[in-house]
Simulated scan of single mutants.
Amino acid sequence: MSALPGIALAAWRAQGLGFNFQGHAMRYWVAGDEHAEPLLLIHGFPTASWDWHYLWAPLAARYRLIACDMLGFGDSAKPRGHAYSLLQQADLQQALLEHLHITGPVHVLAHDYGDSVAQELLARHHEQRFKLASCVFLNGGLFPETHRPVLVQKLLLSPIGPLVGRLFSRQKLAASFARIFGPQTQPSESELDDFWSLIAENHGPAVMHRLIRYMPERRVHRERWVSAMQKGGVALRVIDGAADPISGAHMVARYRALIADADTVLLAGIGHYPQIEAPEQVLQHYLAFRQALAVG
């Protein structure tokens, strides 16, 4: 159990705000001093911004936090028949910042699917289309060649994807999460209930086969995104649960091979959701990164 108190899902949902993005009703959260440095938190697949609930209060004590449930996720709109795209999700992050009148450089903390959105924002930074102050990646598929999808992800991408999505259930979520969380940091039944509630909202399973198109999309943009990470000029760190079968120690090894002066932290025994499994460690390593940035 985390020593950080976290936020109950009902309380979290009650704090959510709404805005319109390209005709879709979106939910977002803000916290902290509006004059503090902005920190954008970008969640992963298939969950939502509540993933950050353990880190929310301690980070809000220092930074201006911004997070939204992306299109197709959590309490935001989940349009049927939509061609979901990581590039559109990056547009969403920029639209949210514009909605909040944030024009200066933004720090980013991302996880999983959110890592790909952050990579796109990093590429846009180098193209002078976004101002990125720093970026920290938690477990995610930074390199398509090291990404090892779980069975349900492979099935969602297959011709039977729509059926697999519709049949996705809390029981199947529990089975998937049991494999990707660390052996000693498994989610509780109540956490699984909450994750499932966010996924099931607005008939979420019906669009999962469309959201999963991010996996081939990552391959399309690989060169641009990897070269953006290699360019330098923006402080980057990877904080990674080493026991994650999807993007654990093997992904970090690839990162170290491809990125000069790679700043990486491996969390032993932790799986795919370090911000849920070991939030104190993630907080410690994130704050140390920001401290070094401030001193440097």
Rank of each mutant, 00 (worst) to 15 (best):
W56G: 01
G74D: 03
R254D: 06
D115E: 10
A61M: 03
F143G: 06
P149S: 10
G232S: 11
G32T: 02
P245C: 09
Q171R: 14
P5V: 06
H272C: 11
L151G: 12
A175Q: 10
D194A: 13
G241I: 15
V152K: 02
I66T: 02
Q94G: 00
K78P: 11
A253L: 09
Q128G: 12
L40T: 00
L258Q: 15
R219A: 15
A8N: 07
D193N: 08
S134M: 03
D69W: 09
A243I: 14
V252R: 06
R213K: 13
D51A: 03
L283F: 06
P38W: 00
G204K: 09
F181L: 10
L138P: 00
I160T: 13
L156W: 06
A292K: 07
D112T: 00
A174L: 12
L157V: 09
L211K: 07
I259T: 06
L283S: 06
P5T: 10
H272P: 08
P58W: 14
L17A: 01
M215A: 07
E201F: 13
D194F: 08
L17N: 08
R254P: 00
G141C: 03
W12T: 08
T47H: 06
E277D: 05
S76F: 10
I270C: 05
H125E: 05
A60S: 09
L132C: 05
L86C: 11
I66A: 01
A11T: 13
P38A: 03
K231G: 04
L39I: 01
A77M: 08
A57G: 05
Y255R: 07
L109E: 01
P144V: 14
F195N: 02
E217Y: 00
L173E: 14
H53V: 03
D261A: 15
L157E: 11
I246N: 07
V164P: 04
N202A: 15
L142C: 15
I276R: 02
H99W: 03
A292C: 03
E145P: 09
L65Y: 02
S176H: 11
T264W: 13
K231T: 14
A242T: 09
L173G: 13
E37Y: 02
S176M: 15
Y214G: 11
G74S: 04
R219H: 12
A249R: 08
A206E: 15
I259V: 15
Q119N: 12
H125T: 15
Q281S: 06
H285F: 10
A178M: 06
I42C: 01
A36Y: 04
Q89A: 08
Q291M: 09
R290N: 03
